[in-house]
Nucleic acid binder design. Structure first.
Lengths: 250, 250
DNA sequence: GGGTATTTGTTCGTATGTATT
DNA sequence: TAATACATACGAACAAATACC
């Protein structure tokens, strides 16, 4: 057996157990991308090489690669090859979670685009998260978080308006929520709880995150408190499923 | 305005902004279910009442309810009403995470069904999780976790075979992983890391979890260590998206 | 068991806005 | 620009299952 693929051995797929071969191949490649054995920007083996590695027809490999492209994990360029598109970004959840810190640790250039800033009445869920009376006024910052130019998260940050009146201006001046809060006297804050759920995106969310609608979201709801224990922020962050994994360090 | 619905006021939906009315209604109801204002088992207002509350036609409400039913959140019974189907189970992640404890705290009767138990070679991801050489032998327990009879999770638990040779028998004798590990000399263990991702289920996963294929999974990968810090378990748990939320207490 | 009200299920018809061709 | 297809939304009527007296 000549090995043109560069990998050590043929991988065995389970045939005839109800899981299509292309799904198994896609899963294997997704694993490699998720675990960074295939780094972001790296070129996948050629279709011919992959076909040899999994001992299947090149058409089967193409079906698997098409699924990965649909999921936004790879980018296929005719005549050049297939490349790992987006790094699977780790979003670490802990007592002190900051978006920009999170990304800088992974050598990604963070960025944020403010979509909307407003003062309005809290919805029931928002009021509950901040322990306010239903209908209390809140400051809302809606933004899209970027990592290396690619949209990573679509987040809605809610603050009690009574306490954080000038937050929007402070944010516009500093360009950072942490800095804006510091301007308003919150030198430090920490995370109380995080709830992680999943669902399919609405049309607008898919558009903002530049993701296909068939790909699920990771939704993280979080409450932040100041040093006195008062609730200062209730945030909902929606992550493009294939591009982010939430890491909990115990 | 006579109020036949029993609710205080009409809720305003934003018309003509690109988000269909039925999606907004489904979202509002999903919020109430997720936040337990509509408790598990509770009956939703009648279609007529909801139509009045949102000031829409009954068809529009029906479309929203159909979406919730498709997502597995409610159960509709002709002549009786619509009921909140499954509690959104909190799956708490912390240093000491035990499946059964997790559920008992919420007054749910835990249960597990062993699907498969075997000793086999580790895949690359499994070997990496346990810090073993690729291809080392591992003990694998595959099970479905139940809460009040409803499947909640589909988990694959991997242990190094060299150290946990008699694990399968110990599990069969005790019916609990924690107890089986205790028999084999691991009195205590704790969680090192947890990675949370999301994706759509394979056919078999959807079947095991009795969920629609269009509904995404929450996938939690975790590594457990003993008191000496040695890796003793690598587990992948797949949760039915609409039925579980992962809670991280910082 | 019967009768009636309640609640969901189904099928017509009509109209509108959006996207595609 | 016109034609077409599709999703959305409203209105009315009746069928079927259930609950209650």
């Amino acid at each position: 057996m000549t090995d043109t693929s560069g990998t050590a051995a043929r991988e065995t797929l389970s045939r005839g157990d109800g899981v299509a071969l292309w799904r198994q191949i896609a899963g294997a490649l997704r694993d490699e991308i998720g675990s960074r054995r295939l780094a972001p920007g790296a070129r996948l083996p050629t279709e011919f090489q992959l076909a040899a590695r999994f001992a299947v027809n090149r058409h089967t490999v193409r079906r698997a690669v098409a699924a990965l492209e649909e999921a936004g994990l790879v980018r296929v360029e005719q005549g050049r090859g297939t490349f790992v598109r987006s790094e699977v970004v780790d979003y670490t959840v802990g007592r002190r979670t900051r978006f920009s810190e999170n990304l800088r640790k992974q050598a990604l250039s963070p960025g944020g685009r403010l979509i909307d800033a407003a003062v309005r009445k809290a919805s029931d869920a928002e009021a509950r998260g901040l322990e306010l009376r239903a209908g209390s006024r809140i400051v809302v910052l809606e933004m899209v978080g970027l990592a290396d130019g690619l949209p990573i998260s679509h987040a809605t940050h809610c603050f009690p308006a009574r306490r954080f009146d000038g937050l929007i201006e402070a944010y516009r001046a500093t360009g950072s929520i942490t800095a804006a809060l510091a301007q308003l006297g919150v030198a430090n804050y920490s995370r109380l709880t995080t709830r992680v759920t999943t669902r399919l995106p609405e049309a607008r969310e898919a558009e903002l995150l530049e993701m296909p609608r068939a790909q699920p979201l990771l939704v993280a709801e979080a409450v932040n408190i100041d040093e006195a224990g008062a609730r200062i922020e209730y945030g909902i962050a929606r992550f493009a499923g294939g591009r982010v994994q939430i890491v909990v360090d115990s």
